[in-house]
């Protein structure tokens, strides 16, 4: 249960993190995660989209259609203040989690 929650939470955390510096559209978010994780984590559209949708529903991000000359219009997502706050809190949880894992795991390898 905790694991599933963390996984789900971590996927949301990744998406939010991608939007921290600037708004991005859905496909770009997936690509960005893939690039930053050096291909370790690949988000397919089918799994990314429900996350975006859920985050928007909960008011963490807000989508807006943007049209550029000669291009199809795209929906760009930006962090809302609530999203920013949530992201900060998630970072803390994540760091605590990592610290806990390190404390448990280190003696074995030490």
């Amino acid at each position: 249960m905790l694991r599933r929650h963390l996984q789900k939470g971590s996927a949301e955390l990744l998406v939010l993190a991608m939007l921290e510096d600037r708004p991005r559209h859905g496909y770009e978010i997936g690509k960005q995660i893939e690039r930053r994780s050096e291909g370790q984590i690949a988000f397919r559209i089918g799994s990314l989209y429900p996350i975006l949708f859920r985050l928007e529903d909960r008011g963490m991000i807000r989508g807006r259609w943007v049209e550029k000359a000669g291009e199809r219009r795209r929906r760009y997502y930006a962090l809302t203040p609530a999203g920013r706050e949530f992201l900060a809190a998630q970072w803390n949880t994540w760091e605590e989690f990592v610290r806990a894992v390190n404390q448990i795991a280190r003696p074995r390898h030490a």
Binding site: R44, I45, G46, Y49, F53, D57
Partner: peptide, 20 residues
């Protein structure tokens, strides 16, 4: 096309959204 493996699941996730 391989990006969306399970259309049913995607549809279900979207339909759950209260705002939509």
């Amino acid at each position: 096309a391989s990006h969306v493996a399970d259309w049913e699941a995607l549809g279900a996730a979207v339909r759950e959204s209260p705002t939509a």
